[in-house]
């Protein structure tokens, strides 16, 4: 039984449509991943396997760079963990509205949970927080399926074109640009701005560290600074509330 104004099919199509602009932006990045993976010495079949097994653009991109630099596997897996840790936030923010779903849906949607699918899905999920009363998991499925298809096809094309894409196009920069588009809207208060500033500063200072360990250090510093500053704000707010209370009395 469903109280949703939308059927499963309508939700699915709406998800596809909403994801379309972001999926378009992913195409150049998928192409360049294919090219870059081959250039880094990853065999074509393993590069394809990476897109379906890992299915995370930034981690694949950084992974390919690290493989090219001859980094030990364990360090690559650790870097993947840190780079993808943000998905735990996405996953936990969707968890309350996914608990009524059958296990197979939870397993499938978790596989499709990328930055780009989450960015659209969370908007739909925040519009309607009722759990069982609708078919919005089909919306999530629509965003995920479109992005998955575009990613697999564009990386495959990149792999088979090999070195046909001229380096002068600098398509690798679409990764940074996509992330700029995702990160700027998160800078909504002082702790988030400070968190980004700390991550930026440490990323510059630690750039020469081996194995991109500077990335790990920068990310952890950013998280730490954000949490501490938020704690400080909370403490200050509590203090001024207490002082105000005293004045009133």
């Amino acid at each position: 039984m469903s109280f949703s104004p939308f059927t499963a099919r309508q939700e699915f199509v709406a998800g596809l449509k909403a994801e379309m602009p972001i999926a378009l932006g992913v195409i150049p990045f998928g192409l360049i991943f294919g090219v870059l993976a081959l250039a880094a010495g990853v065999p074509p079949l393993l590069a394809l396997a990476m897109s379906s097994l890992v299915f995370a653009g930034s981690a694949q991109f950084i992974g390919a760079q690290l493989i090219g630099a001859g980094t030990p596997g364990l360090v690559i897996v650790l870097t993947t963990f840190v780079v993808n840790l943000r998905h735990a936030l996405y996953s936990s923010s969707l968890a309350p509205q996914m608990k009524h779903l059958p296990r197979r849906w939870q397993f499938l949607l978790a596989y499709l949970l990328t930055d780009e699918a989450y960015a659209m899905t969370i908007i739909r999920y925040q519009q309607d927080k009722r759990d069982e009363a609708n078919q919005k998991h089909y919306y999530f499925l629509g965003t995920g399926v479109l992005l998955w298809t575009v990613w697999q096809v564009s990386t495959a094309v990149g792999i088979f074109l090999g070195t046909q894409v001229p380096p002068g196009w600098q398509l690798d920069f679409t990764l940074a640009l996509t992330f700029i588009g995702l990160v700027v809207p998160t800078l909504k208060d002082k702790p988030h701005v400070a968190s980004a500033a700390a991550a930026a500063m440490v990323a510059v200072l630690t750039f020469s560290w081996p194995y991109k360990l500077g990335l790990v250090a920068a990310a952890l510093s950013g998280i730490f600074v954000g949490v501490i500053l938020e704690q400080g704000q909370r403490f200050q707010a509590g203090l001024s509330a207490a002082l105000l209370q005293e004045e009133v009395e």
């Binding site: 950084i62 780079v83 735990a88 936030l89 990160v183 702790p191 700390a198 440490v202 990310a219 954000g226």
Partner: peptide
């Protein structure tokens, strides 16, 4: 703070 920090560290 994870998305802000990690994405900035990549960008």
């Amino acid at each position: 703070y994870v998305p802000t920090a990690v994405l900035t560290a990549i960008i």
